[in-house]
């Protein structure tokens, strides 16, 4: 079996269209994950156990179960309870909620891992609570969690192919379609894999640079 360049080139337009869908899903899911995750973290840090414990359970549950089963659940269950949504929307929300559970922990750790001395320094300056959070805690926590959040965004990008299983026509789905038409999977699936590397490796590299810059600035 040898690599067929003309077939590879022919399949490129379809694959690039799939990549575009994949990137859109990643963007949408990231917005959900980053914002819902922050809400989770705020609730988990609440001193009221009646609030923090249920949210912690929800987060644990989302983290303890496979993404593909969660997505199946939304895909098959939503219509049964009378909610109709397109597969694209289900995919974005399903992936986003999965990521949110992970982001929640990143935010929580970012806040809790700030040295206690920062709280004390703010206390002896008598900073009012709103400025304690706005000026001291949040900016430092945000810097601390930025790289980890970026990692999860990249991870969600790599998880998008799982949405193939609920017929979202993203990159892997396009590759499998081409393969099943011609019974040649080598070219389309290899290109799919390479496209993932082409997008994710520079992101990982950029993130590492960012992390180094942030740690230099605050060390």
């Amino acid at each position: 079996m040898t690599w067929d360049w003309s077939y590879a080139l022919d399949s490129l337009p379809n694959l690039l269209r799939g990549l575009l869908i994949t990137l859109q899903i990643t963007a949408g899911a990231s917005v959900i994950a980053l914002s819902v995750g922050l809400v989770y973290a705020a609730l988990i840090l609440s001193p009221l156990k009646i609030i923090s414990l249920p949210v912690r359970f929800v987060v644990d549950f989302f983290r303890g179960t496979p993404l593909v089963v969660q997505v199946f659940f939304w895909f098959y269950v939503l219509p049964e309870i009378g909610i109709t949504a397109g597969v694209f929307a289900i995919g974005v929300v399903g992936l986003g909620l999965y990521g949110a559970a992970y982001c929640a922990d990143v935010y929580r750790a970012g806040i809790q891992n700030l040295p206690g001395s920062q709280w004390e320094a703010a206390a002896v300056l008598h900073l009012p609570r709103r400025f304690l959070w706005a000026d001291v805690i949040t900016p430092q926590a945000f810097r601390a969690v930025l790289p980890a959040l970026g990692n999860y965004v990249i991870l969600m990008f790599k998880y998008t192919p799982i949405l193939t299983t609920i017929t979202v026509t993203e990159l892997l789905a396009e590759g499998l379609d081409l393969g099943s038409e011609t019974y040649r999977y080598l070219e389309p699936l290899t290109i799919v894999g390479v496209l993932f590397i082409i997008v994710s490796l520079p992101c990982v590299y950029g993130l590492r640079k960012l992390e180094q810059r942030l740690s230099r600035a605050t060390a």
Binding site: S117, Q118, E120, A121, V124, L125, Q140
Partner: peptide, 28 residues
């Protein structure tokens, strides 16, 4: 009326020296 200085300085690492010193008068 009470101020405290710590063994480990505890400056805010994300603020310049000037901003560290301004923080109290401005915010408190």
């Amino acid at each position: 009326d009470v101020g405290m200085v710590f063994q480990q300085f505890n400056l805010f690492p994300h603020m310049t020296a000037l901003r560290n010193v301004m923080e109290g008068p401005m915010r408190a």
